[in-house]
Write a protein that binds this DNA or RNA. Sequence first.
DNA 1: TAGATTGTTAATCGATTAACAATC
DNA 2: TAGATTGTTAATCGATTAACAATC
Lengths: 216, 216
Amino acid sequence: MASNPISRLTLQRLPTYLSYLKNLPEGSPPNISAAVIAAGLGLGEVQVRKDLASVSNAGRPKFGYSVLELVKDLEHFLGYGIYHRAVLVGVGNLGLALLSYPGFMDYGLHIVAAFDVNRALIGSTVDQRPILPAEALSGYCRESGIQIGVLTVPAAAAQSCCDALVSGGVRAIWNFAPVHLQVPPGVLVQRENMASSLALLSYHLKTQNGSPEKSD
Amino acid sequence: MASNPISRLTLQRLPTYLSYLKNLPEGSPPNISAAVIAAGLGLGEVQVRKDLASVSNAGRPKFGYSVLELVKDLEHFLGYGIYHRAVLVGVGNLGLALLSYPGFMDYGLHIVAAFDVNRALIGSTVDQRPILPAEALSGYCRESGIQIGVLTVPAAAAQSCCDALVSGGVRAIWNFAPVHLQVPPGVLVQRENMASSLALLSYHLKTQNGSPEKSD
DNA sequence: TAGATTGTTAATCGATTAACAATC
DNA sequence: TAGATTGTTAATCGATTAACAATC
């Protein structure tokens, strides 16, 4: 377990390893090799070893990794069991979906309230979480010690909502709006860019259909 | 406009440029410089010029880029106006949300049908798109010439649904399930990894909170 | 022409991969 | 001990950035 700063891309792969290991079929052997993990996830073998070495000592030459130990180390590193209280801003189609999605709890995200400008929504609840007026956003975050803001508002509203989150003390923002947000140092914005993904897919179709130059 | 193969990361940034340019305030000047775009999107100035040069000739020394021309070139490159017919597999929380989300049309994604195993859902429609039985997936794709499959099924079902899509002739898959999919050459899988994003956010909070070594 | 701004070539940086050393 | 597999050091690759040339 090296203690150099972990690389961004390694960090992004860690949840994938964890989920892979936790979903190994019943009755799998207690140890697993980097080669098997790599094949299962479509990664390079060396990359797997390097990634895992950055958070764990569970690997032993000749035996591979103890699955149990590796899971424990990954969970520890990723802060498994530590829940981050979050708010969601913008209860439209996407926002409502994320709000209703039970899977985030598995990743430590606990959305405790939602905010919107639509008077028709305000006052109702989604799975016991209240929908509150946007004006209350900043104060609520500060009083409740909210750590993460999930932004699912239209592009035009994103920056001002972001400002409200920041002034409420939030320092990590998950941004689904298709805009770049200006934030002070110390605040991380992670943009989830659906349009980028679709650009890759549609470019693939274009180049594969139109011109059959490359085939893999 | 260089005609080298475009880099993956450049390609992913192109929709961002397009959206930025299209949302410029009314009455903005007809030309814009790389420096302004870079500042607006939080990118490097040289990177912007290089990215744009890969798809457009709209830049002129001393004047910057003609916004109109640049928009046209980006739209052309990204295949604006070309709709890809898609199916969505797995009408759970997330699937239903994506199905209801009107924004994808802007990116050329046209979901024409959804599939699920839940008999209670089959036969109903969402915004005029039918929910059909999973058994019909492969045949439907082939008959309707479906190009893109959106996978929002549980991890355990992902590979078999993927196989059905592939055997139906689909060659681009947008995978929201937290698993690696095995596909034959020529088929592109783009994985949308929510857990990775959350890992970055929560690691940021951990390092910023726990140890105040670095502050930017 | 001079100056601003683009486009490109070369240098740097970060991540992946290859080669190898360590170890059970 | 020999062999399998991990961990690490060095080489490669791809993307970004810096320096500069081109041009309006």
